[in-house]
């Protein structure tokens, strides 16, 4: 029920508060009534036909970096 997928904004219709988003080859019209300040190229979290939130590319990179660093073994690193 709460599953949502990140999709890329293709085009925006501000009058109707809708956008066409692409998820791989699939394109779909969704409502953007819940999210302000979108531009094509942004990624949004899509849930039951609505954009719920904009994705932050910086935070996405930071989390991956955190995960990579958490996976390092300090002893192994020291020995190397």
């Amino acid at each position: 029920m709460c599953l949502a997928l990140p999709a890329e904004v293709h085009s925006i219709d501000p009058a109707r508060e809708t956008a066409v988003v692409a998820l791989g080859p699939v394109k779909k019209e969704i409502s953007i009534a819940l999210v302000d300040d979108l531009t094509p190229g942004d990624f949004v979290l899509v849930h039951v036909g609505f954009a719920l939130h904009k994705l932050s590319p910086d935070e996405a990179a930071r989390t991956l970096d955190l995960i990579r660093r958490a996976g390092e073994d300090p002893i192994e690193e020291f020995a190397a």
């Binding site: 819940l34 719920l52 904009k54």
Partner: peptide, 17 residues
């Protein structure tokens, strides 16, 4: 952990609606 879409305040516009 999920900072790419979660902030402390959340989506204020959605909460208001």
């Amino acid at each position: 952990e999920y900072t790419r879409v979660v902030t402390r305040e959340g989506n204020v516009k959605a909460q208001q609606l």
